[in-house]
Design a protein around this nucleic acid. Structure first.
Lengths: 144, 144
DNA sequence: TTGGATGCAAATACTTTGCACACGG
DNA sequence: CCGTGTGCAAAGTATTTGCATCCAA
């Protein structure tokens, strides 16, 4: 937890009791909870906390790379007519999704003991990064 | 488009004008649109279509594997305190997310020419499948 | 003391649902 | 004709925002 406090300081984030309790709740579980689930966990230790605070903190901590969003594209369901095995590039800025057809990526195997009891049906790789257009925009805004 | 009609027949889905226009819109683009975006595209050809019909059709077509959801976990933002490179198993039934730490999966490279102009910052593999608990439940319900 | 953080309530965004009617098979 | 699909409106769920107050630095 001292690590967390130091990281907040380094990132210029205030160290509030709420923030600590939220982080403690998230780091105590491997269940990859939603904001609502974190809220329920946190309420046990701090019943007066507000759901909005949980949302704001999870977003802030993710922005600073202190926690991770498992579902970076969760805000909108997005569809694809191409049902063949392929992968995606996702631009972190504009959320654009670009198809990657690369047969080298189609033979990934997971060691069975890493996923005991889990029946793997398929997989999908999400590369995250910055697309051409957004990189250009960034350069322009930095040049100002 | 004949393929699509044949597939619908095979899957026991009625072939309606709306369904065809929705599929045509989705398959005409590589932008991985949301339901709202598909709705806007479809409205040009069929202005009286309802947004609910678009939602219902996208869901139905995805259920039958005729189209794909790029974002199977879109319904809820989910967080992880572990920011180290690792991957996830997702159960298609209960949406449980299980961590996979397997260093073999941490050295995937994308051929540069496959993603021209895209600056790759990282990646994440989502394995989809059925978890132990859901597999057991399925066996029980099939045994009835 | 001051800017960031909190908490409440209201607003918004996305998606689903119920139901009467229409239409495909 | 029967059952699935459509369209509308209403409801539901997830998330964000505005703003007054509070608190960490």
């Amino acid at each position: 937890m001292d690590d967390f406090i130091a990281t907040c300081r380094r990132e210029g984030l205030s160290v509030t009791y709420q923030r600590i309790v939220i982080y403690k709740a998230l780091s105590s579980t491997k269940t990859h909870p939603s904001a609502e689930m974190v809220y329920r966990m946190v309420k046990k230790e701090y019943p007066s906390i507000s759901l909005a605070t949980v949302y704001k903190n999870l977003e802030t901590l993710a922005d600073h790379g202190i926690i991770a969003k498992v579902t970076p594209l969760h805000d909108l369901a997005r569809f694809d007519a191409d049902t063949n095995l392929h992968h995606h590039l996702v631009c972190v800025h504009c959320k654009k999704i670009i198809d990657i057809h690369d047969t080298n990526l189609n033979e990934i195997e997971i060691e069975h003991e890493k996923a005991p009891g889990f029946q793997v049906l398929g997989y999908q790789i999400q590369f995250v990064g910055v697309c051409n257009e957004c990189a250009v925009k960034q350069q322009i805004s930095e040049a100002v």
